[in-house]
Amino acid sequence: MKILVTFVLILFNYVLQTTLINRLSIFGVVPDVGIAFIVSIAILNGVFSGGAAGFVYGLITGIFFGFSKASTVFYLFEYTAVGAIAGLLYPKTENKVFIRPMLFAGGGYLLKELIDIIPKLVLRIPVFTLPLLMILILGSLYTAVIMFPVHNLTERLHRFRFMRLENDTRIFLEK
């Protein structure tokens, strides 16, 4: 049940990202609601779930927007990496404020964009500094802001019985 609900939410986030969120761009920069959701899953469930959520989200995005098989695999890799790294690095201590998840979402966005730039650097494609900085700063801030409602809703959802594991002792359930 938990896997099914998470899968449906990944699809929902994908649809949201490719329809509504893309129309809310500022100077052509869009936040990544997918990153926010993957980081949220990673924070709440750990490295494996974060990586798996990133894998599924990256696969769907790659299927629809990958220019070639390589770019499909690239999408898959970057979202999986963000999910797994967020799950790995997030401290397992109690945290009542939302700043930390928001920082992680912003960081996840930065990581994804930096992974995006690697092939351009390898292929020696010039990237202008100012637009790059704008994309990195504006996009990560925008994603961090979007993380607030996304994580709030995801955390609330994880309080339901069907989203809990047996003998679940995760910290956020103690709040």
């Binding site: 490719t18 329809t19 869009v30 629809f64 927007f65 964009e113 995006d116």
Partner: peptide, 8 residues
């Protein structure tokens, strides 16, 4: 029906 989700 959809727009690519990234900035590049």
């Amino acid at each position: 029906t959809a727009f690519s989700p990234d900035n590049w």
